[in-house]
């Protein structure tokens, strides 16, 4: 069976995206059971994570895989074993897939050079978080009536693009799906040349609404960046870069990869509003990650999609 690593969405085609989403949809409909029976999925988390780790674990277990979890506490990782040595060990122990979370960009690619088993990037530094982008596409497709409905929609990514691995995966993902994407962030939280993604940069959430955004994709503002040199205050940030009830109108959807900072990038009464897709994003994680595991281990071939 052909295996493949999932490291980045940068060079993923529209067809690749559709393949994952179609398989995820089939799995959500109940075809997931025993898809990964007999397979061993290793979760190697070199960085604290709750929702992504739980989501991958559920995705693997519901599709019948054995799951081994290695977190930074109480494992070789805590004893100072190097990334390469850890993944080589998991590989030789017979892992069929290694799900890797790591604080440094490029860690998943580096790991994949040393293993026979496919590596699935569950977030590496400020680099990539491809399964997040896939589940976002799944949740948004569902809300809009299908993958084809994404093309031509307008979506604004708001917040700390500079330090966001989510942004680096959702931008190519959304663009490939045909969505028109713009960015809103202060220059201190934007990469130079706005990342050279060729996306328009708007100055506030109000401007995004005026631009005609159908979707606001809010990024989490890391706590350590709330004070200090990059933004003057949480109050000023929330005023210009947060979404509040006053922004909501029929047809506007709000997304957030979680965990949210209520009152910072999103006001408390928006989080669970009807316009919020946040719970749907979380739910989509399981079937999407089952599909990624199935495709990466080769149990689901391209034709199955």
């Amino acid at each position: 069976m052909e295996t493949r690593s999932f490291l980045t969405l940068e060079d993923t085609s529209r067809e690749d995206l559709r393949e994952v989403l179609d398989l995820a949809r089939a799995y959500a409909g109940g075809h997931v059971r025993e898809a990964l029976a007999g397979k061993t999925v290793c979760l190697a988390f070199f960085e604290a994570s709750t929702r992504t780790a739980v989501s991958f674990e559920l995705a693997a277990k519901r599709s019948g895989a054995d799951v081994i979890s290695l977190s930074e506490k109480g494992s070789a990782i805590a004893k100072g074993e190097s990334l390469i040595d850890t993944v080589v060990t998991l590989d030789r122990l017979g892992a069929d897939a290694i799900v890797l979370r790591h604080p440094s960009a490029g860690a998943a690619a580096l790991a994949s050079h040393h293993t026979a088993a496919p590596v699935i990037n569950a977030g590496d530094g400020c680099g990539q978080h491809p399964t997040q982008a896939l589940l976002d596409l799944y949740a948004l497709s569902d809300a809009l009536g299908g993958f084809e409905e994404l093309a031509g929609r307008r979506l604004t990514i708001v917040g700390d693009v500079l330090h966001s691995r989510v942004a680096r995966s959702v931008i190519p993902g959304f663009v490939r799906a045909g969505i028109e994407v713009s960015l809103v962030a202060p220059r201190t939280l934007l990469p130079p040349d706005a990342g050279a993604w060729g996306l328009p940069v708007l100055s506030s959430v109000d401007d995004a609404i005026e631009w005609g955004a159908d979707v606001l994709y809010m990024l989490r503002l890391q706590r350590e960046r709330m004070t200090g040199a990059r933004i003057p205050s949480v109050a000023e940030y929330a005023r210009f870069y947060g979404v509040a009830r006053r922004h909501l109108h029929s047809g506007l959807l709000v997304m957030h990869p979680g965990p949210v900072n209520r009152g910072v990038e999103i006001s408390g009464d928006v989080v669970l509003d009807a316009s919020s897709l946040i719970p749907d994003q979380v739910a989509a994680g399981i079937c999407v990650r089952s599909a990624v595991l199935a495709l990466s281990t080769g149990v689901a071939q391209r034709a199955a999609a």
Partner: peptide
């Protein structure tokens, strides 16, 4: 270097 390549890669840049 704090440039386009760094921002695409998600690596912290020094200007």
């Amino acid at each position: 270097h704090d440039g386009v390549a760094a921002s695409l890669a998600g690596l912290p840049g020094s200007p």
